[in-house]
Structures are given as structure tokens and as C-alpha cells.
Amino acid sequence: MTLLRLTEVSKRYEAPDGAEAVPILRNITVEIGSGDSVAIIGPSGSGKSTLLNIIGTLDRPTGGQVLLDGQDLNRLDDLQLAALRNRQIGFIFQAHHLLPQCTVLENVLVPTLANKDATLRNSAVERAKRLLDKVGLGARLTHPPGRLSGGERQRVAVVRAFINQPKLLLADEPTGALDRASAQNLADLLVALNKEEGVMLIVVTHALELARRMGRVFELRDGRLVDSR
């Protein structure tokens, strides 16, 4: 079942002084089903992150349509997009972006604060503990992120992305700042979560090793998405 459909999505950046706009993405059309895992590779500056941002509603395309679960993202206003991000999309950044002032558990629970549903918020605590336990951080719930290793931080970020049971998980170079072993662990975790939770996973990466473990691999070349497998 198609969860995400991009139709003729393009993105241009206006140039200064009225010069012609610079195209980044050109007419990208792709369909990704729920539970799929996708890697997007390409050279720096090829627009991978831009594409990920457009899918993650952090940016809007210049042209084309993005349908998430049949919902046209272009038609949603900023507040609706924020709610959508909160409930349906999970983000994993290259830099973990954990809040340094909060403990591991609290960091995981931060996305639930934007949610007005109190029962969901309450049930999230148990879920957070279970997930943290699953990623091997069950004993470190009260630790601040500062005391974790890079790999552990990234695992906390993964759990945080999962906490609201999103349909879509977006990872922007998740292993970019990790050593080989940690990167391997994280890749295992992502793949496992994708399989067990049935969440769609889109990974932007330079690491071919990680890319190879995804179900589909696309290369972004000259603003076009090319299926490289």
C-alpha cells in the first residue's frame, strides 16, 4: 500500500538580483509503500536533504504534489503541518539534537508534549521505557545526554523519533557522525524497527553500507531521483 507519493516534485531556489532561479529537484515522482525502507544517496549538494525536508514537511516544494497517507501536504497550513510532523513523522538527524537539559527518558518524551491528548502522553512513558530497554538504554533513563556516547545518543534520538508511533521515519545521515561499530549498531536498529514496527524508513546517507541494507536505493543525480537498484 502506497503511503507516500511524490508527483512531479520540484524545488528551485531564487537567485539574487533577479537572475534565473536555481533548480535543485526536478520533477521527482516516486511512490513508497508503508513498511518500505528507502535509502537516498548522492553527492553533497545534490538536494538529498532538501528532498527529505520536503517529505518531512520542513520545507515546501516549488512544484508538484506530496501525498502522505492520501493527504496533500501542500494544502495544509503550518499548524496542521506541525501536528502532522508530531504524530506521523519521526526525524533522526545527523547531529542527534537531544535537549541537553533533559534526561534520556525526558528527551524521548519531548515530542509527546506537543500533543494535547493526555492519555496518549501518559501511555507514552511506558512505551518510551520499553523502547529504550529494547535499544539497550533501559538502565540509563535518568542520564543526561552529555553522559552518553555518540552511538547511544543517536539511539535515544531513534527512540524519540518512534515515540509517537509515526508512519514515516526520516533519517538524515544518521550514521554520519558515528564510528563504524556504532554505525553498524544503528543500522541494525533502524532495520529492525522498520521490520518490527512496520514503519516506513527513508534514510539519506553517504554510507553505502547503510544504503545497501535498505529495501530500495535511490540516487539523486542532477535533481532527479534515479532508482539505482
Partner: peptide, 16 residues
């Protein structure tokens, strides 16, 4: 700034 960016990315509204 990063903290704000994170909160916004996690679905907080600017108002929140």
C-alpha cells in the same frame, strides 16, 4: 537555536 529547531521539527508550533 538548535533546540528551537528540534522542537519545531518534533511538531511543536512556534507558539508552543
Amino acid at each position: 537555536a538548535t533546540e528551537v529547531g528540534t522542537l519545531l521539527a518534533l511538531g511543536f508550533t512556534p507558539r508552543q
